[in-house]
Write a protein that binds this DNA or RNA. Structure first.
Length: 758
DNA sequence: GGATCGCTGATTTTT
DNA sequence: TCAGCGATCC
């Protein structure tokens, strides 16, 4: 069990007593953590502040339940929000057990629901092989529904209606449960009907969307006492991570599973109301605030000792979050030995360019002092803000990665390939079939597609069957006939091959025979080789799964980026994306009114919105172990023109004693008070005591204006760009190049983006 | 089927 | 400003 001790040693206080050997894992916990682990019976809420060892408590509790013989692995239901969290929990529980953790009901809400729903699919009109649609498919399906209902897609964007439907699903509302009063918010009363149609179409397609996984399962548990009893018998203990992020339907699902006749709900929820930042996705902080009422006799354990951050960082974060009302109330206390530390820096800069230079400069200097780049992160409010930093880092030659970009499974070629597989595994999947029916080109135009739809509707059959019927009846002619005939043959052979040769070979052959791989092989696009690599990788990944069905389940539910190794790179991401992560040094740019807090949130969400933004700020600061550098620019370019910006109110809310103000911008009091907000919003700005920022400190990172540099690349030179491929330089302007790309048109780029070739 | 034009809108996105 | 779309034309 030596590796267990290693595993727990990361931030544990030294044990006071020698433990009985079997209970090693308890001794490295502090008193509150231990209480949270050992309070086994009855409902328990663990309020775990940032960096207080939440995951540790959850995994140790899980292991403790098993090791103390209270339950077998299959009798514990453990729920997380992310696949990453689920994986981490599985690994750590395995370590504590000293063997791989198998047969666990451990996973994300959606993965667990999918697993259950495959067993009971018939209760909602599906078969166990139902498809799980991605966002793309959802929108396409909804567009079809709207068209049929003659809802003007221009006036009522499908995305908007999708949002309405999803919020309904988040709240556990089936179409039948939507009242007329509830309906009026979209499309003048058309939403309810569209929702009903959309659900009906999903059943026809033998498909669900993400929301359905929760909604259907909750519906089944609510209406089928026999099914519910089955799970009551199965699960003795329920563990829930990130409880503050649960939405209503997730809450209902949990409550159904946890509450049984004779009481004794062994549910343990871990969360932090101060880190609730997903209300816009349907999360209800009220769930955690209401816990004691929902589960009478519940115990509450607070974890407040923070082992992650220095004292000034904790003080700054605590001071900020104290401005929120209606909290359950926790105070982070430093648990680290090194309780002194650098104060949180608030840097005032002139404009966004200077901000990027400041951040880049500090990164370079830290890097020179042997701080790994991977321990530095820039956390922004919105995705587009990373661009300025990317450009600066490219200029400086510092490697970086943007977390949360396009994911592997979201790439077009991967989705296409998956669509082929879906048709094989589930012939009723019209959306998948429509996606690839003319990819590569098979001469299927609008007219053919219309005819197919017509036939499908008339005969009440899926599109693939409609194709076969039109082939048989001779309604399809010429090239289209030939091509579709061949395509149907490919699908049939693939289904045969599945059992005979295995899914890896079957899919490989399918992609080749249908001409999909060939389409990219003959493509002259500079992106084609990369896409072919991705396809190869996809087929290779198939081998990790026992069946095609298992693989498809994985790609639907585990949409994530396999990050390229652990190279030493600076991290750029949104604050939302940083939740649960930590770094030595954290840069927090753009703390300006209108940007952070976001004007739109204030306009739409009022004080609740503001409080959520403040929680976001709290999450941002508490990501830092050693250093946090907050910055705001006095001038920022919004779309076309420059506008002056005033510092975020969150800066004023940081406790003076723990911050250090620095920067080149002399933000006079007058300017601060009179400057208009960046975005013209209606939410009143706070008229609090402004923090005077007349710091005259010229920091070391302030540089003279960058000398204009002439590019070394001449007009006429051949160059290569990562994304645009080969091209010829047509003109130069200092370090800018105008390049005519062979396949991507003419672009203006900085010379550092391209490589000279030939 | 592909190129071109013009309009629009522009946070966050665990699954 | 600029990307991403839908409509329109060849």
């Amino acid at each position: 069990m030596t590796d267990v001790t290693d595993l727990l040693a990361d931030s544990a206080p030294v044990p006071a007593l020698a433990p009985p050997p079997a209970m090693d894992y308890l001794v490295s916990l502090n008193a509150e953590q231990r209480e949270a682990v050992e309070t086994i019976d009855g409902p328990l809420l663990v309020l775990a502040g940032a960096g207080t060892g939440k995951t540790r408590v959850l995994t140790t509790r899980f292991a403790h339940i098993l090791l103390s013989g209270r339950a077998f692995p299959g009798q514990v239901l453990a729920v997380t929000f992310t696949n990453k969290a689920a994986r981490e929990m599985r690994e750590r529980v395995g370590h504590l057990l000293g063997r791989p953790a198998e047969g666990l009901w451990l996973g994300t809400f959606h993965a667990l629901c999918a697993r259950m729903l495959r067993r009971h699919a018939e209760y909602v009109g599906l078969t166990s092989s139902f498809s799980i649609l991605d966002t793309d498919d959802q929108i396409r399906l909804l567009k079809q529904v709207m068209e049929a209902r003659r809802i003007d897609a221009k006036r009522w964007p499908p995305q908007g209606l999708m949002g309405v439907i999803q919020r309904w699903k988040d709240r556990g509302l089936t179409p039948a449960a939507i009242t007329a009063a509830e309906d009026s918010e979209f499309g003048g009363g058309a939403a309810r009907g569209a929702y009903a149609d959309y659900q009906a179409r999903l059943v026809q397609l033998n498909a669900t969307d993400f929301g359905d996984l929760m909604l259907h399962m909750t519906e089944i548990l609510r209406t089928r006492p026999d099914v519910l009893a089955q799970y009551h018998r199965a699960f003795r203990y329920i563990l829930v991570d990130e409880y503050q992020d649960t939405n209503t339907v997730q809450y209902l699902w949990l409550r159904l599973l946890a509450k049984r006749e004779g009481g004794g709900a062994n549910i343990c929820c871990v969360g932090d109301d101060d880190q609730s930042i997903y209300s816009w996705r349907g999360a209800e902080v009220e769930n955690i605030l209401r816990f004691e009422k929902d589960f009478p006799g519940a115990r509450i354990v607070r974890l407040e000792r923070n082992y992650r951050s220095t004292a000034p960082i904790l003080a700054a974060a605590s001071g900020l979050i104290a401005h929120n009302g209606g909290r359950l109330g926790k105070t982070l206390r430093p648990g680290r030995a090194d309780t002194t530390g650098e104060r949180v820096v608030v840097a005032s800069v002139w404009d966004s360019d200077e901000e990027a230079r400041m951040v880049g400069g500090r990164m370079e200097s830290l890097h020179r002092d042997n701080h790994p780049l991977s321990e530095m992160a820039v956390l922004v409010r919105a995705g587009f803000q990373t661009r300025a930093f990317e450009e600066r880092l490219i200029t400086l030659g510092l490697p970086y990665r943007v977390i949360g970009g396009l994911r592997f499974y979201e790439r077009a070629e991967i989705r296409d390939a998956i669509a082929y597989m879906r048709v094989v595994s589930q012939p009723a999947d019209d959306l998948a079939f429509e996606r690839i029916i003319n990819l590569p080109r098979r001469g299927v135009g609008d007219a053919t597609l219309q005819a197919l739809h017509h036939e499908a509707r008339a005969a009440q059959v899926p599109l693939t069957v409609a194709v076969q019927r039109l082939l048989d009846s001779g309604a399809l002619k010429g090239r289209v006939r030939e091509q579709l005939n061949a395509l149907m043959g490919c699908f049939m052979r693939a289904r045969d091959a599945l059992g005979r040769d295995g899914h890896v070979s079957a899919v490989g052959t399918l992609l080749d025979e249908t001409g999909y791989t060939g389409m990219w092989q003959s493509s002259k696009s500079p992106e084609a080789p990369g896409r072919l690599d991705n396809l190869k990788e996809l087929v290779r990944a198939l081998a990790d799964f026992e069946s095609l069905g298992g693989f498809l389940e994985h790609v639907s539910l585990v949409m994530e980026n396999e990050e390229s190794a652990n190279a030493d790179r600076v991290n750029l991401m949104t604050i939302h994306g940083a939740k649960g992560l930590e770094f030595d040094t954290v840069f927090l740019p753009g703390w300006e009114e209108g940007i952070f807090p976001s004007q739109r949130t204030l306009d739409e969400g009022g004080n609740k919105g503001l409080e959520e933004e403040r929680r976001l700020a709290y999450v941002a600061i508490t990501r830092a172990r050693l250093r946090a550098i907050i910055s705001h620019a006095a001038n920022r370019r919004i779309y076309a023109n420059w506008q002056s910006a005033i510092p975020s109110r969150f800066i004023e809310e940081l406790p003076d004693a723990h911050i250090e103000i620095t920067g080149s911008a002399s933000l006079a009091r007058e300017q601060r008070m009179s400057a208009p907000p960046v975005f013209g919003g209606q939410f009143p700005l706070t008229a609090k005591r402004p923090r005077v920022m007349e710091a005259t400190v010229i920091a070391a990172w302030e540089q003279p204006p960058r000398p204009k540099r002439e590019t070394a690349i001449a007009v006429g030179a051949r160059v290569f760009h990562q994304k645009f491929g080969p091209g010829t330089v047509r003109a130069t302007d200092e370090d800018r190049l105008e390049i005519e790309f062979d396949h991507a048109g003419t672009k203006r780029l900085m010379d550092s983006y391209v490589e000279q070739v030939g």
